[in-house]
Design a protein around this nucleic acid. Structure first.
Lengths: 342, 342
DNA sequence: CTGAAAGCGCTTACAG
DNA sequence: CTGAAAGCGCTTACAG
């Protein structure tokens, strides 16, 4: 029965097998041509019996690799980050990499503290996602210049131009939502925007405006509100919109907002979609489980996680792929099925 | 401007300041009485200027502490684990501990692999939560015997009796749900159970049975179904229950099941709670945002995270607190407000 | 195919 | 108050 614990070291194995620690190391690391078959078998057997497992810290100290990657997110409660994390983790585990998950709580200072405490030999790379608020990027730029593997997710600062960035289809989502509703006959489409400070919220709104223009519709500020990416703000915004009316459909900048909007709509006795049509952005399980089901646009967070995984592994393996932007396409979902090209 | 990167070492600082590395180390670690004020100032200034940051791997190698804790969960999609994780992380961060999050995907073999790869000097402690399916505990027991800090969450194997365990109020939840519905006048209360292999699902059901008995109600197997902890299974189970009727209220073993049940109910045109009352267990944002709002019983996951954090830190600091079971109380929530004693 | 030796970047008795 | 030295558990040229 193999034991765990780090008691038994390479030295024990060496003296037990009457070889040097160098030979043990070679065998354990499968350095080809580094030992005879007989020695190998003997050492492997001893390792098995003693339940030897290498001390990862000691190894890291010389190899300069820890097989650890940190990922900084503003808040794991966002469904997007859960999906993203799952995709990323599955990918990295294939290469024996483990993930450190850090909650920045949308606070630039916490973010900086995390980064400083992690990038001193603890992790091989770092993935820094949006803060959904004012972001400070100097530290990231510095790290990148020092060729420390860093990838940004959903960060849009112009000063980040030399970093490897992964983004979702915010603009497309706004545009697609309008197109979809237009195709259903709607001509007055309200919009509840996301967080005021979040750049990705602005881009979704820009996509909405572009969608209106493409459909030949006039933008109308009286049917646009802010929603803070929360359920409560979405509900509040919708209540205000309903007071004045003047629209037949509404788009929420994320699913929480959208759900809040639905609640406000249904509270007044109106029906979805008979009285008001609703489309969400950043699809979560929430709109699927809702009664009635709500149409929402998927950012494909799981795939984004895989893409980010590929990028960080490439950088860790020494391939410089700076200056590149990877943007995932958005997909509209209706009743659990993806809808092509709207 | 402080640099990051691990280029500059304690050696650089030492030669720059004309002192030994030992002195630098003492200053940086604030070993009291280990240096003069003048030396301290000089070294601190140099460290600041060069942007020195200690190599954590090297430090760990000698201190035998990595300031890392791993937490293994079956699936981060469960809202409970998000809340739990947030509470745990916030607590551990206070002590400069970071968290490694590992998804076992409910697979005992993945779990074992994770544990083996983490407990060889990489992490100072490990938190292993339920698999929601058949669990293998030998490895955990071994670790515990070797005095490696390990805490189980929601694991119920009798063989775990010597480990420190944290549990939620599964039994209470089932009982409270019945009591609440009974107090609202219901006498025929259906129940949709959780995963077949999950022990915590069985306990919730046992609580339900105990609740019935305490209220003087007869258990009736014809209004009990399994729901697998998923939305779809909950919907399916509810559809079946509705065909035969014979109840005026239903309890879902978790919120996803409960939401599925609501969907099935509303699909048939019945109203909640006018026609059928619904209570969920393991409260999530889902029942809050639902229209109508659903009553659900909160396991206080955030507090569980803090409790687990306290336990693991104690163990890491050498306090043995094996054999102890910490059980968090459940709280019933109605319209966003907690309800005392039902 | 194998070993002696140096070294990764720290900390920690020990001696002064 | 300070330094020389050993050591944490590994890996990696280098030499044979």
């Amino acid at each position: 029965m193999a034991k765990t614990g780090s008691r038994v070291t390479i030295k024990d194995l060496a003296s037990m097998c009457d070889v040097s620690t160098a030979t043990v190391s070679r065998v354990l690391n499968h350095i080809q041509g580094g030992y005879s078959g007989e020695t190998e078998a003997r050492i492997l057997k001893a390792a098995e019996e003693l339940g030897y497992a290498p001390n990862l810290m000691a190894r890291s100290l010389v190899t300069k690799k820890t097989n650890l990657v940190a990922v900084l997110v503003p808040d794991i409660h966002y469904y997007f980050f859960q999906e993203f994390f799952a995709g990323l983790e599955a990918y990295l585990n294939k290469f024996s990499y483990r993930l450190l998950l850090c909650n920045t709580q949308e606070d630039p200072r916490q973010e900086e503290q995390f980064i400083r405490s992690l990038c001193n030999g603890l992790v091989d790379g770092i993935i820094v996602s949006t803060l959904n608020s004012r972001e400070e990027n100097e530290l990231l730029i510095e790290l990148n210049e020092e060729h420390f593997p860093v990838i940004t997710l959903e960060r849009y600062g112009e000063e980040l131009r030399d970093l490897c960035s992964v983004q979702v289809g915010n603009f497309d989502a706004g545009r697609m939502a309008v197109n979809y509703l237009y195709s259903k006959g709607h001509r007055k489409i309200a919009f509840i925007r996301g967080k005021r400070d979040a750049r990705n919220a602005d881009i979704r709104y820009e996509g909405y405006l572009a969608g209106l223009e493409a459909c030949g519709l006039q933008p109308d500020e009286s049917i646009v509100r802010y929603g803070d990416y929360t359920f409560e703000a979405g509900r509040q915004a919708m209540s205000e919109l309903l007071e004045n009316g003047g629209f037949t459909a509404v788009i929420g900048a994320n699913d929480l907002i959208t759900l809040g909007a639905c609640k406000a709509i249904m509270k007044t006795g109106r029906r979805i979609p008979a009285d008001i049509s609703v489309v969400g952005i950043d699809k979560t399980i929430l709109t699927d489980t809702h009664e009635p089901t709500i149409v929402s646009i998927d950012f494909c967070a799981h795939q984004v996680g895989i893409t980010v995984g590929e990028c960080i592994m490439s950088m860790i393996n020494g391939e410089s792929l700076g200056k590149r932007i990877f943007r995932q396409r958005s997909v509209l979902f209706e009743d659990g099925k993806s809808v092509r090209e709207v």
